[in-house]
Nucleic acid binder design. Structure first.
Lengths: 151, 151
DNA sequence: ATACTACTTAAAGTGAACTTTAAGTCAATA
DNA sequence: TATTGACTTAAAGTTCACTTTAAGTAGTAT
C-alpha cells in the first residue's frame, strides 16, 4: 500500500505543501519517487511521520527535528544523543503543561469574575467583594493576581 | 511608586522593546508619560500587564488581546463579550493541555525506548520485544504508535 | 486522444511577534 | 558642565513555518 503526498497529508491532517516543505528541509530521508518523479509514501513511513508530528507538537523547531533525524541515520552510535533529546523534550513539555495550568487558573478566575459581574450587571461589585465572599477556590487565585509585594 | 519601561520589563521578565511594541499596538490604554516624554508605569498597571501576559500564555494573538482591551474600555456594557472571550480561552487552554499530555506520552515512551536501547547497545533489540516484555504502561503507547489500521 | 485532477519545481509572498538600528533626548551623577 | 546610561522614535530587519504562485508534468477516466 502506497500513497501520494495528498493522501498522506490528509491522513496526517496537514497540507500537502507542508509535507513538501518538510521534505525540502530534509525531514524525509526515506523519501522515494515514482518513475515520473512523484513522491511515494509507504505505510512504514507513517509511524515516522507521526513522531515528527509529535516532536512538532512539543514545540521543537524544524532544524532541531532535522538534527534528530540525522542522528537516527547514524544508527546505534547515536542512541545516547537521541535519549538526551527525548529527556530534554520531556522536561520541556512538562514545563509547558505547568505554565498552561497556571494560565488556566487565571482564566478560570476571570470566568468566575465575569459570570458574577454579569449577574450583578457591573464589574465594580466583584472588585469590592471581601475574601470571605469569594468561592473558596477563587481566593488563592485572586490573591496571586493582586499580589504587589514584589514592588 | 512608579517605574520606567526598563524596570517594568525586568519585573515582567520581558524585553523593554517588547513593551514598546505592545504600546504601539494599542495594548496599553493607561499609558502615561513624564514631562520629558518618558513612559511612566504605575503599580496599578502591573496586574493589568499580568493579565496580558496570561492571555499571551494561552496563545492569544496581539490583535485579539487588543480587541479585549477595547472591550474593557467600553465598561459594563461589554461584560458578556468579555465573559465569552474567557470561556473560549478556557476551552482553548484545556485543549492545548490535553494535546501536550498526548505528546508527553509519546515522548515518555521514546525515553523508555532509548534507555532500553542504551542498555542493550542497539535499538533493534527494543524493536523486537514482545508486548509482554514491555513495562505495562508502555504497551498501550506503543500500540497507539504502531497502529496502522487507519490504512 | 482529450480532459482533468493531482502532482512537480523554484521562488516569492505571508503573518506573527518581536528585535535591531540610527539618530537623538532625558535625567542622574562626578 | 560633561559624561553616562536609559530613555525616545520610525523604520527596517529577523525568524519561523508555512503558503502561494506560475509554469509545467504525471496519471487516470472517458
Amino acid at each position: 500500500m502506497v500513497f501520494t503526498i495528498g493522501e498522506m497529508a490528509k491522513k496526517l491532517g496537514v497540507a500537502a505543501s507542508t509535507l513538501r516543505y518538510y521534505d525540502k528541509e530534509g525531514l524525509f530521508p526515506f523519501m522515494e519517487r515514482s518513475e515520473g518523479g512523484i513522491r511515494v509514501f509507504k505505510e512504514s513511513n507513517y509511524e515516522f511521520l507521526k513522531i515528527i508530528n509529535c516532536l512538532k507538537a512539543t514545540g521543537m523547531q524544524i532544524k532541531d527535528i532535522k538534527n534528530f533525524i540525522e542522528l537516527v541515520l547514524q544508527g546505534d552510535e547515536s542512541i545516547d544523543a537521541r535519549l538526551e533529546i527525548f529527556q530534554k523534550r520531556k522536561l520541556e513539555v512538562e514545563k509547558q503543561i505547568s505554565e498552561l495550568q497556571e494560565a488556566l487558573e487565571t482564566v478560570k478566575f476571570k470566568c468566575w469574575y465575569y459570570e458574577t459581574a454579569k449577574r450583578a450587571g457591573s464589574t465594580a461589585i466583584c472588585d469590592n467583594l471581601r475574601d470571605d465572599e469569594l468561592p473558596e477556590d477563587m481566593r488563592r487565585i485572586r490573591a496571586k493576581l493582586r499580589r504587589e509585594d514584589t514592588f
